[in-house]
Design a protein around this nucleic acid. Structure first.
Lengths: 223, 223
DNA sequence: ATATAAAGTTAGAATATTCTAACAAAATTA
DNA sequence: TAATTTTGTTAGAATATTCTAACTTTATAT
């Protein structure tokens, strides 16, 4: 089991790696607000523990094992954020610091319960994907449908909630994953969006619905 | 702000003090599973920090400041237990270890929210009192009404929930705090209890209601 | 291409928390 | 009360995490 501290390093490496696939000591130092020599020694330690690949003067990369353990911390963080927003009524801007602390709780049951109560969400309140129990996550830059512009053609990739009645609503509208959607227009006063998909023309979707629909403009990339 | 570790010592001192008003090094050592010399040095540290009164070879006592800080940790622990049981569906026997970790979270808003969502509970799922925001708590051994025996005469001291509709229900029955209640009989098949109080004879209270009513057999003691 | 800047490393020290070994005081028991 | 047991203390060392100061390597910019 990793310590609190090690978990914070792993998480930082994970986050920095998100784009480039690796992280360097200097950025870690700034992000964690810990001096470079300290980070440096921790890199050796994590390397010894088989969590990262580390060679002097080179950026570090997570091993398979490190990747998985980091993903589990991110998972706990994002599930917690989702829980705080959905079940406790916090604003999306209030949950980070609390989740930062709760992510270190050791109790699979606790997070499994959160997951269940939330209906197994795929993303957190900020739209970031939540890794599954095996550490896998859809590594894609999704956009909310209500953030698209008229004329955009997008692909329905995920929902932020998988509650029964929302999914039923989508079924009745023939809105399934991978559906190609074209944004026709957006009402400025209430955000209602007019879209086209399949054989359907001039379908209206409320802003509340569009806020729960995540779309991609192009491809999907996996880790 | 106290460290994680200091908080655990404070909490242990608080719990051991509950009965005798003081705690000794040996008991702390056993309870915390930390060797005596370590406990000894921590006692000096907590004493320096003005949280306990410590003199060599004597049991330690919490100062006003220490008492308050310990109470706040206990408060967070018990609120958490209550939340886990009431809002997340855990059993009373599953919550201790999780609460043990969450009690160290630094976020007044988080616990205030729990408190609010729970309807400002006065006790935790095990019947232990939850200290209020000022660290004050009713230091009494309450019993649930549904754990009394026929013939018992008891005093209504607290409710485990103060949700609106439950309190309204109690009002319509003239059941107020400090009411003297006599237990007449208990149905074995569903736990329904027949009681007498004020001018009322033969009042029936469901087991669900009686589970939320805490009573004392005699006096109240304060810290 | 050399000088300067940025990034990374090593060595040594500080703090927090823990331990073991040895000793001392207090309490208990014979 | 003297012997024994329990409890408490001191001293010194180990581990984890952090720091500063000095030095080295790599990257950047004249």
């Amino acid at each position: 089991m990793n310590t609190h501290t090690e978990e914070n390093y792993l998480k930082a490496i994970f986050n920095l790696s998100a784009t480039k696939g690796e992280a360097n000591v200097n950025e870690l130092s700034r992000q964690l607000d810990i001096k470079m020599p300290t980070v440096n020694s921790m890199m050796k330690k994590l390397s010894d523990r088989g969590l990262i690949i580390y060679e002097s003067y080179k950026p570090v990369r997570l091993t398979k094992k490190g990747q998985k353990e980091a993903a589990m911390i991110i998972r706990k963080h994002r599930l917690t954020e989702m829980y705080l927003v959905e079940k406790m009524g916090f604003g999306w801007d209030e949950v980070h610091d609390i989740a930062e602390q709760i992510e270190h709780v050791q109790s699979p049951e606790f997070f499994a319960k959160m997951d269940e109560l939330l209906g197994y969400p795929k993303v957190d309140p900020h739209g970031s994907p939540i890794p599954d129990r095996n550490g896998k996550m859809e590594w894609t830059e999704y956009h909310k449908l209500n953030e698209c512009k008229p004329g955009d053609t997008v692909i329905f990739k995920a929902v932020t909630h998988s509650s029964d009645d929302f999914l039923k609503f989508l079924n009745t509208r023939e809105l399934l994953l991978e559906t190609v959607i074209k944004v026709i227009s957006i009402e400025s006063f209430d955000g209602t969006i007019t879209v086209e998909y399949n054989k359907r023309k001039q379908e209206l979707l409320s802003n509340i619905v569009c806020d729960k629909i995540l779309v991609s403009h192009k491809k999907t990339r996996s880790v």
